[in-house]
């Protein structure tokens, strides 16, 4: 079941269109990556999901019903631009945000004490935020985001401001929350930072959803049957010989030992054995690997494809 459905959402500002007919479905209990370069429209989409801004057209459905202001109590949001009230004490401030999310003062205090104990920061309760270091403030912000046990968690560029230790802590806590049944949406322009934890992704480029789906399926779709060859010999001659079984060649730079690199796509129906046999007959094969494609590669390819289709 999908916890969140975004249907044909369009949002335009005076000078540009931030979202152009974007649709996506977030399955319950998954970690969902919202990827795209800076300025693609991710933050606008997140604000719409958070009921901060309204779309010009289209709608957002949470848990089977159109999103309302009351639903924000079931969403935990860690914005990209995050800050706290500098002059306020840490504990008071956390209680304030928890109450805005619908918790009672009493419940908020109890839960906060637990989290503070867990992170070993109980002695910060009466400190002012301006006395905290950035890393310390990040922990407080994380607690504020998850305290009300939201069904849906949204992290906008979560790792950008966090130091490596906190980023790791964050990752672990997020996976923990996922195991407890929460759905997590990540938004980032740094593809590699989330590919290991995302189950599904959507790529947004220039206000449009250009690619959505399960990470493993996408990998197969885009980079299935691709292989890298390393060898000593004539690369061009080899490519000609390989034409019956493979295509989409890319020639790499020779390495320090004078070895050539070729990346290729095995034709459908052709056998891997034939490919290796032909290669062995023609060159001195030094290495043979299946290509491991990163989300970054997929993203670049998807962007190229979408742009060429728009131009056509």
């Amino acid at each position: 079941m999908d916890i969140l459905q975004v249907e044909n959402v369009t949002k335009a500002y005076a000078s540009h269109v931030a979202l152009d007919n974007v649709s996506l479905n977030v399955p319950q209990g998954c970690v969902y990556g919202l990827l795209g370069p800076n300025g693609a429209g991710k933050t606008t989409l997140i604000r719409i999901i958070n009921h901060i801004t309204a779309p010009d057209s289209g709608r957002v459905i949470l848990d089977g019903h159109p999103l309302t202001q009351n639903d924000v109590e079931h969403i935990g949001y860690l914005p990209e631009e995050r800050g706290l009230y500098k002059k306020m004490k840490v504990g008071e401030q956390a209680v304030f945000f928890a109450r805005l999310k619908g918790l009672s003062k009493h419940d908020a205090t109890i839960r906060l004490k637990q989290w503070f104990d867990k992170f070993d920061i109980s002695n910060w309760w009466d400190k002012k935020v301006e006395e905290l270091s950035k890393g310390m403030a990040q922990k407080v912000q994380f607690i504020v985001t998850v305290l009300h046990r939201p069904k849906l968690l949204i992290f906008d560029e979560p790792f950008s401001g966090f130091d490596p230790i906190n980023a790791n802590l964050l990752k672990e806590e997020i996976l923990q929350l996922k195991n407890e049944g929460a759905t997590v949406i990540f938004s980032t322009h740094n593809m590699s930072s989330v590919e290991e934890i995302c189950d599904n992704i959507t790529l947004i480029n220039k206000s449009r959803n250009i690619l959505s789906g399960n990470v493993d399926e996408l990998r197969r779709r885009f980079f299935g049957n691709r292989y890298d060859l390393t060898f000593n010999g004539d690369a061009r001659a080899l490519m000609e010989k390989l034409l019956p079984v493979a295509g989409e060649f890319t020639l790499g730079e020779p390495d320090g030992q004078g070895r050539e690199h070729i990346s290729l796509h095995l034709n459908d129906g052709a056998s891997l054995r034939d490919l290796i046999t032909i290669a062995n007959e023609n060159v001195n094969l030094a290495g043979f690997n299946e290509s491991i494609s990163s989300m970054n590669d997929i993203f670049i390819r998807a962007v190229k494809e979408s742009e060429s289709t728009t131009e056509n």
């Binding site: 109590e73 969403i75 914005p79 706290l84 945000f97 805005l100």
Partner: peptide, 12 residues
């Protein structure tokens, strides 16, 4: 402070 975005995610 950038605290605003956090606040407006809970209140209009």
């Amino acid at each position: 402070n950038r605290v605003l975005e956090l606040v407006v995610s809970s209140i209009k």
